[in-house]
Computed example of a mutant assay.
Amino acid sequence: MQDLTDKIRVWAIMRNLDEAEPTKQMLKLVEEVGEIARGLARGNMDEIKDGIGDVQVVITILAMQLGTSIEECTQLAYNEIKDRTGEMKNGVFVKAEDLS
């Protein structure tokens, strides 16, 4: 995974995407998430996989544009959830503090 992430960075730098406007990259992210939703709605696993991969590329570049890294952001998110407790409700994990 690290090798692929590094290749994404090189690809982005070669195209000056690392210096592009983050708001445009955010719009691209929403577009790619929509691709995943469309794939889910249609039961199209190829479209879902492509969308998930595209999201990974876009957020890697977005992190670069904002002066951080996808690894740092993922570590922060993991640190936040690693000890989280809760339970599944209707197929969704609900944090313990949100259970009533």
Rank of each mutant, 00 (worst) to 15 (best):
K82E: 12
G51A: 05
K24M: 04
I81C: 11
Q25D: 00
A12V: 03
Q75A: 10
L76A: 15
S69H: 02
I70Y: 11
A41R: 14
V55P: 00
V30N: 11
C73F: 06
Q2W: 14
V10F: 08
Q25W: 11
K28W: 11
I13N: 06
A77T: 15
E21S: 12
G86M: 10
E35S: 00
I48C: 03
R38Q: 04
L66F: 04
N16I: 03
K95L: 14
V57H: 05
D50Q: 14
F93Q: 08
G53E: 11
K49R: 08
Y78N: 09
D83A: 12
G39A: 05
A96L: 01
N79G: 03
T23R: 13
Q75Y: 12
K89C: 07
G86T: 04
A77S: 13
D54V: 02
V33W: 10
D46K: 11
I8C: 02
L99D: 14
G34D: 12
M1R: 12
E31F: 02
M26P: 02
D46G: 07
N79H: 02
A12S: 15
G43C: 03
S69D: 06
G91S: 11
L62Q: 14
F93M: 08
E31L: 01
L27A: 08
Q65G: 01
A96W: 03
A96R: 03
G91D: 03
M14T: 03
V33A: 08
V58K: 00
K95P: 07
Q56S: 11
R38S: 12
V33Y: 08
L4C: 01
K24T: 03
G34P: 06
G67Q: 07
I52Q: 09
G51V: 02
I8T: 04
T23L: 13
A63V: 05
E71T: 10
K95W: 15
T5S: 12
G91F: 14
G43Y: 05
N44Q: 13
S69E: 07
N90D: 15
A12C: 04
G43S: 08
R84P: 00
T85Y: 12
G51T: 00
T5W: 11
T23E: 13
A41W: 09
L27M: 03
G43M: 10
V58S: 02
D50Y: 01
R38L: 09
D83S: 13
T85Q: 07
D46M: 09
L4G: 01
V94R: 13
V55Y: 01
W11V: 05
E31H: 08
I36T: 06
L29M: 11
D98N: 15
A63S: 11
